[in-house]
Computed example of a mutant assay.
Amino acid sequence: MKHLHRFFLLGALALFAGLFLAPLYVMVVTSLKDMDQIRAGGLLDLPSDPSLAAWSKAWSSACTGTDCGGLKPFFMNSIAMVVPAVLISTVLGALNGYVLSKWRFRGSELIFGLMLFGVFMPMQVVLLPMSQVLGWLGLSTSVWGLVLVHVLAGLPSTTLFFRNYYVGLPDELVKAAMIDGAGFWRIFWRIVLPLSTPILVVTLIWQFTQIWNDFLYGVVFTGAEAKPVTVGLNNLANTTANVKEYNVDMAAAMIAALPTLAVYIIAGKYFVRGLTAGAVKG
Rank of each mutant, 00 (worst) to 15 (best):
V192R: 04
G107N: 15
Y25E: 07
S131D: 01
G42R: 14
L100W: 05
M254L: 15
P23N: 03
A62G: 10
V192S: 06
T230L: 03
S56V: 15
H5G: 07
Q207S: 13
V119K: 01
M123K: 00
V272A: 09
A237L: 12
F7L: 13
N77R: 13
C68K: 10
M121K: 02
P84C: 08
T66V: 04
L116D: 02
D34Y: 07
S101M: 11
L193V: 08
A262R: 09
I179Y: 00
Q132D: 09
L148S: 02
V192E: 02
E225W: 03
G70A: 09
R186H: 11
P122W: 00
A256P: 03
N234I: 03
S157R: 01
M115Y: 04
G118V: 02
R6P: 01
M76F: 15
A182F: 06
I265T: 11
N238L: 14
A94W: 04
A226N: 10
F215K: 05
T240E: 12
R190E: 06
A94G: 07
L204Y: 13
L87S: 09
A153F: 04
R273I: 15
N242R: 09
G145K: 02
V231L: 03
V83F: 14
G118C: 05
K244E: 06
K269A: 12
T159R: 01
V29I: 13
K72M: 08
T203Y: 14
E225P: 04
S131W: 00
N96D: 08
S56W: 13
S48A: 15
P84L: 07
R104D: 10
M76K: 15
E172P: 02
A251K: 04
Q37R: 11
V82F: 03
N242A: 11
V28A: 11
V219R: 02
V99P: 07
G181Y: 12
L32S: 07
L52N: 11
T260Y: 08
W59D: 05
F120Q: 05
M81L: 13
L155K: 00
S196Q: 12
G274W: 10
K227C: 01
V86C: 10
N164E: 00
F184L: 07
Y264F: 13
I88D: 09
A277H: 14
W206M: 12
L13W: 03
M178K: 14
T66Y: 03
V143R: 15
E245V: 05
D180R: 05
M130E: 00
N242I: 13
M35W: 10
V167A: 02
G278P: 06
Y246F: 12
V82P: 05
I205Q: 15
S31G: 12
G181R: 12
A177T: 00
G278C: 09
V125F: 00
N77K: 14
K2G: 11
L193S: 08
K244C: 02
F75I: 15
L4Q: 10
F75W: 08
T239Y: 13
I266V: 14
L92E: 06
F117P: 02
I255F: 04
G268S: 12
N235W: 07
L15S: 13
G218A: 08
L193F: 10
L134F: 00
L44W: 15
A14R: 10
S108R: 07
I266P: 09
W185F: 13
A224R: 06
Y217E: 02
W144P: 02
F188Y: 10
A22T: 00
S60A: 14
L233E: 05
V231N: 03
L4S: 10
A253L: 01
F188M: 09
Y98L: 11
L152K: 00
N96V: 10
W144D: 04
L52V: 08
